[in-house]
Design a protein around this nucleic acid. Structure first.
Lengths: 221, 221
DNA sequence: AGCCGATTACTCGTAGACGAGTATACGCCG
DNA sequence: CGGCGTATACTCGTCTACGAGTAATCGGCT
């Protein structure tokens, strides 16, 4: 599951999908993606675009359909998808849809280092995040509503998904803030003391000892 | 906000955080991260490790503390964090915690291409995802519970976060499946028809026309 | 008629990510 | 006490991502 792809960039997925509908040349692909608003979910990078197209060709997922020049413009190479490309697209989609996980989040990484900062500062930062999340979500919700009048929702599920996730995140952050503030989160008291006075809590000393003996992984997480 | 970092790899964040506690040599950093179970949230890659350390040094965030050799082993270079490094760590943390978004998800990308597959297949795949999500979540929940008995929750927030997000995702997926099955999701009927009979729905034809004229972005999403 | 800015379409160079490979030392089993 | 598996500590080379730069054409305005 979630196996390594020969061409792993998500932009490649979008391109394969595009070419499965009709042949195109690279620049046209980028334009079409932009026109369809896909540049929200996938960043279109000129550098990547041509590398990805090249690699897709290298591995036989797409092939040259024709090359022509209009006037004296630089040559336009039109590509079409191959059988192998169709298969790859299909397989990749199945994989992405059916296998959860894998995404590394900066926020999660930062959370796991949060012990290095003062609780009050964390609360302040999280509050800022929450405000921004709420703002973005409200805007997005309004945007979605507007679009929903002209488009079947089918075309908007991916935005709905992202919105749902961000709403969930907002909820979680709200909860965390209140847990830190009220002290419900076990460990904050010692943490705050440590950050304020420099006094190393027993728990921490304990943990460091255990770590030295490499006992952490025993719980099998 | 969310500005470009001189050293952008999340591994660098972990390393800075580690070195802000005490000087270490690269291999030791990797060991410590593993011992602390951080290899769940951040993948530790030998190749990346040394590149990142090198870059951190290049930009003055860390500096050589000492180099020694025990016996005839390869030289061990111990690094310590600099003032600039402390500042970078702090600033980066503030950024990661207070600014939401930015994470590109493969699932979202796949969702936005879902129109290219048959609804029944999508439902099948989503159901698989749901099963897996539920399984992973149950396991994680159990694991967390076990750990919570020995560790203050403070050390587990990042796992709690990831769990919360995956639970939210499961909920959303469950909803989507039922919306597709029952046909509540506007557009599925036409979609299914199209996939079954090849008959191009009016809506789609309409959209393609508009796209040609570049009207998509007007809603300002 | 001709100039300017936007659009089209790509090229190239660099920096980063990553994995496979390497080389030494240490423990321990027979 | 010799050999071998494992842990230690990196090195190297490839492949990918990306952004800045380029060069031609087109439309419109003076």
């Amino acid at each position: 599951m979630a196996k390594r792809r020969k061409v792993g960039n998500l932009l490649a997925l979008a391109l394969l999908s595009l070419l499965s509908q009709q042949p195109m040349y690279p620049y046209e692909m980028a334009q079409t993606l932009k026109a369809r608003g896909k540049d929200n979910s996938i960043k279109i990078n000129w550098g990547s675009l041509y590398t990805v197209v090249q690699n897709l060709e290298k591995y036989g997922f797409i092939e040259v359909d024709s090359t022509e020049r209009e006037g004296r413009q630089p040559e336009r190479t039109t590509y079409r998808i191959t059988e192998a490309g169709q298969a790859e697209l299909r397989d990749w989609m199945r994989d992405l849809l059916s296998v959860p996980g894998e995404e590394a989040s900066g926020f999660a990484a930062a959370l796991s280092e949060a012990g290095g900062m003062h609780p009050d500062e964390i609360v302040e930062l999280l509050t800022t995040r929450l405000t921004r999340l709420d703002a973005v979500n409200a805007a997005e919700q309004a945007g979605l509503k507007a679009l929903a009048e002209r488009l079947p929702r089918l075309f908007l599920i991916e935005s709905e998904y992202q919105l749902a996730m961000r709403i969930a995140e907002a909820g979680w952050v709200r909860g965390l803030i209140s847990e830190i503030v009220t002290g419900t989160l076990s460990g904050v008291d010692a943490w705050r003391k440590f950050r304020d006075t420099g006094e190393v809590p027993d728990v921490l000393r304990h943990l460091l000892d255990e770590e030295a003996k490499g006992r952490w992984d025993e719980a099998g997480m």
